[in-house]
Design a binder for these strands. Structure first.
Length: 846
RNA sequence: GCCGGAGUGGUGGAAUGGUAGACGCGGCGGACUCAAAAUCCGUUGAGCUUGCGCUCAUGUGGGUUCAAGUCCCACCUCCGGCACCA
């Protein structure tokens, strides 16, 4: 894939100023050759693990959004090195995934080839930005030496019973030829490509993430993450507290168990609803309703998720003909089937309380079911006719001996009451479901599991004279079967299970994964018996669940990383990436991390101590960048025109890191001009004498500001401060050496190429990457005289030019005597004078 | 509907409760130039005023305070996420 030579739209900018192209190439090469940014572990220094979310190397290359977070972490890392930290700052590639496979199917190019090319492009583009990654730690999730450990972790999960097979209704996407996770479906269509998705049962590998639900929820409190992300995770995990209650089904057909968060509304349950998927549908339905219910269930099953969602406005359902007994009122209430009750949540059945639940209310209205009010708003008379459901808390009415109880008290009381009668119990439910972990794809990690091939007598098939292809044929015609009921783990010493190097990665057209066609890979003999490998592969999330661990010790062939390296570097101190990974990647990675914690592999219960989401960069039109809108900005062009330093500076100067902000190429002129002017200062004669006081003050204030802002990742204001300092320097005839050197040092994290070049010109033979960050003199940061505002009745009426040390009494006298102020207080009575030294004087008059 | 975030000049954005608009982009005026670009200097929230200055102004309406972009209450709009989870 040859990239067109980037063409500049702004030739004037290229022509003027210093030769950034030469300087940037020079230093990028220098850093690489000297391994300047190889991570060091030096005793006595604090460690800092600063991580970027690694990219999926797509064919389109980098866009201007990628370098935003990368630039931020790079500045931070360069700063920390100069502040004496051991810094780990790696980069790698999340390279398994559907696009390479789709491209392969279209063009016949092997995904491995595409992936290699794309990685090369990404690496080249990232290096062109001058980031200080430790390139010796690069990881690639598609490298067998990497996915060996992905498989190893999978076997740990399997060993602990956290990986299991299940026949589950999954989201089958015919167009993509694969199953998708719930998280990969947006409005009933595939996240990638927007193809339709249908529900069908298939044998799948599942991960029991629900076993970790409580810990995943509780530990969110302990991490320094944006509130929004924490809220999204809590919401996704979806803990809810309530009760399960058993209702007797009439005609001695057993009991129907429901889950409710409002057991206090039991007296208002006037009907029940079971999901179409509920196992008791056939039991409950009466002969006369048989056909109607069967038809409804069929229709509901055929509906895709999307259609179900589209139907949320209009509720549908069918009466089963059967009744249940409300244990509180002993009334017979009808049981309905309706798809507004989800089969997969709670017990798949509910007690409907239309007076106090909007969904039940809508349903009851539509089908003319009775509505019984049992909760009154506190302080208001109970109204009999309900115009809408009241879902808040209140006081119990029409609830027998429980009348008058508050919602909270009632919940306690009724739960006890149910418990005493063996009718119910407290129950916690979760929205979080187990993770469908298998994909019907070629380009993913093989799942390291195999199964016995059995013959018609049930014996494991003896080796005989068969070839793998013949075994496959036997299975196809039914004379042999693969025994999926016993999953056999591949031995740890046999890892990695490599992907076969096939050219036939095209989907089979059925639900069988493409690996099913690689007979020689799939079928093998051991001890004279035939076995078949698992042919599903892992989802793209797998590799990214633990890559931050591999960076710690990327070439270790004995362990996923040495205990020593893990102990030294974990946890990740700062993790920067897009908010689109708020739930999926971050939740999955936390889950795996906790499992590894339980296995004793990692010493922390959370992987990422601090998280920052960089805000999306929009197109110049303020819309999301997209090919179809034609507003995509190509970083290669920008780099060719303005240079890496100006580009980095602009990306940070646009605004706060977390904020969404529109791109404006015009703004790059500003940072380009700034750097040109910086370079121009260094063409002036260097003055070895002390800097004049005004300049020294400006310098020290700027060092203080840049230091503070860099610590807090407020790069935009740090840059503004350096621009301010430059404006002060511009009027000087000669550049004081002290100022020149310190300016270089504070500029270095932001515009490292130019800073290195100027540093060298100042006569330093060493790179400034490990130079010491400058300190500032607080005394020089305070002005000795200042302009103090004077307010009269809250309005600004004058300004005093005074010494910073002027005492309060004197300030008061000066303020009252000031001619501008005097005219506002001349004929008034001064009630009060507030003096805040160094800040302002406020006079209250009447 | 629920959760999270944000509303400040023409524009991106600055502002420990204390001179709103730092810094940049753009605009305007000037210098340099045959001319343009680049560069440099000045200027740039709105309105009133010859001028000193004055009035208004941080989404809207209230409130607390000597003092509010900042704190409190109510609301509006926009962005992101979730959404029949009983």
């Amino acid at each position: 894939m040859s990239q067109p030579e980037p063409v500049s739209d702004y030739p004037e900018t290229v022509r003027k100023g210093y030769d950034f192209a030469a300087i940037e190439a020079k230093w990028q090469q220098f850093w690489l050759e000297h391994k300047t940014f190889a991570s060091r572990i030096e005793a006595g220094k604090p460690k800092a693990y600063v991580l970027d979310m690694f990219p999926y190397p797509s064919g389109a290359g980098l866009h201007v959004g990628h370098p935003e977070g990368y630039t931020a972490t790079d500045i931070y890392c360069r700063f920390l090195r100069m502040r004496g930290h051991n810094v780990l700052h790696p980069m790698g590639w999340d390279a398994f995934g559907l696009p390479a496979e789709q491209y392969a199917i279209k063009t016949g190019t092997h995904p491995a080839t595409t992936t290699r090319t794309n990685i090369d492009t990404f690496r080249r583009q990232i290096r062109a930005l001058g980031f200080s990654y430790d390139w010796d730690r690069e990881v690639d999730t598609t490298d067998p030496a990497y996915y060996k450990w992905t498989q190893w972790i999978f076997l740990k999960l399997f060993e602990k019973g956290l990986a299991y097979q299940a026949e589950v209704p999954v989201n089958w996407c015919p167009a993509l030829g694969t199953v998708l996770a719930n998280e990969e479906i947006i409005n009933g269509k595939s996240e990638r490509g927007g193809h339709p998705v249908v529900r069908m049962p298939l044998r799948q590998w599942m991960l029991r993430i629900t076993a970790y639900a409580q810990r995943l929820l509780s530990d969110i409190d302990d991490v320094d993450w944006p509130e929004g992300i924490k809220a999204q995770q809590r919401n996704w995990i979806g803990r809810s507290e309530g009760a399960e209650v058993d209702f007797a089904i009439c005609d001695e057909l057993g009991t129907l168990r429901v889950y409710t968060t409002r057991p206090d509304t039991l007296f208002g349950a006037t009907y029940m609803v079971i999901a179409p998927e509920h196992s008791l549908v056939d039991t409950i339905v009466t002969a006369s309703q048989q056909s109607a219910v069967a038809q409804y269930v069929e229709t509901a099953k055929a509906k895709s998720e999307r259609e179900r969602q589209d139907d949320t406005k209009e509720k549908t359902g069918v009466f089963t003909g059967r009744y249940a007994i409300n244990p509180a009122t002993n009334a017979e209430i009808p049981i309905w089937v309706a798809d507004y009750v989800l089969g997969g949540y709670g017990t798949g059945a509910i007690m409907a309380v239309p007076a106090h639940d909007e969904r039940d209310f809508a349903f009851a209205r539509k089908f003319s079911l009775p509505i019984q009010v049992v909760v009154a708003r506190a302080g208001q008379p109970a109204s009999s006719e309900a115009e809408q459901a009241f879902c808040g808390e209140g006081i119990a009415i029409h609830s027998g001996s429980f009348d008058g109880l508050s919602t909270r008290d009632f919940q306690e009381a009724i739960t006890l009451w149910l418990h005493d009668r063996g009718l119910g119990t407290r129950k916690v439910n979760w929205k979080l479901r187990d993770w469908v972990f298998s994909r019907q794809r070629y380009w993913g990690e093989p799942i390291p599991i195999y199964y016995a091939v059995r013959d018609t007598t049930g014996q494991v098939l003896a080796q005989g004279e068969w070839t793998p292809t013949q075994v496959a044929a036997h299975i196809a015609n039914g004379s042999n079967v693969i025994d999926y009921s016993v999953a056999l783990a591949v031995g740890l010493d046999e890892l990695p299970v490599r992907l076969p190097e096939t050219e036939d990665f095209v989907p089979t057209g059925s639900t069988e994964p493409p690996l099913g066609k690689c007979h020689d890979w799939r079928f093998f003999c051991r001890n004279g018996l035939w076995y078949a490998r698992e042919i599903n592969t892992m989802p793209q999330w797998a590799g990214s669940c633990w890559y931050y661990l591999r960076y710690l010790d990327p070439t270790n062939s004995e362990q996923l990383a040495s205990a020593e390296a893990i102990r030294h570097w974990l946890p990740v101190d700062l993790y920067v990436g897009g908010a689109e990974h708020a739930v999926l990647h971050l939740l999955y990675a936390r889950f795996w991390h906790k499992v590894l914690y339980d296995c004793g592999v990692v010493p922390t219960s959370e992987p990422f101590a601090r998280l920052i989401n960089q805000g999306m960069i929009l197109g110049e039109d303020g819309e999301k960048m997209s090919k179809s809108r034609g507003n995509v900005v190509n970083p290669d062009t920008m780099l060719a025109t303005f240079g890496a330093d100006a580009f980095r500076l602009y990306e940070m100067f646009m605004g706060p890191l977390e904020q969404v902000k529109p791109w404006a190429t015009a703004g790059l002129h500003g940072t380009r001009r700034f750097l040109n002017r910086v370079a121009a200062q260094f063409d002036k004669p260097i003055d070895d004498g002390p800097a004049e006081l005004v300049i020294a003050r400006a310098l020290h204030k700027s060092i203080a500001k840049v230091t503070e802002d860099t610590v807090n990742l407020r790069f935009n204001t740090a840059i503004a401060s350096m621009m301010g300092l430059l404006n002060d320097l511009a009027r000087l005839e000669r550049l004081p050496r002290e100022v020149a050197e310190n300016f270089c040092l504070i500029l270095a994290p932001y515009a490292p190429h130019l800073a290195e070049e100027l540093w060298q010109r100042l006569g330093h033979p060493q790179s400034l990457a490990w130079a010491t960050w400058p300190t500032f003199d607080p005394a020089l940061c305070i002005e000795d005289s200042l302009e103090l505002p004077v307010q009269v009745n809250g309005k600004l009426r004058g300004r005093l030019l005074v010494a910073a040390t002027t005492p309060a009494e004197e300030l008061q006298a000066l303020a009252l005597a000031d001619p501008q102020v005097a005219k506002w207080i001349a004929d008034k009575l001064v009630l009060k004078v507030i003096v805040v030294p160094g800040r302002m004087v406020s006079i209250v008059v009447k």
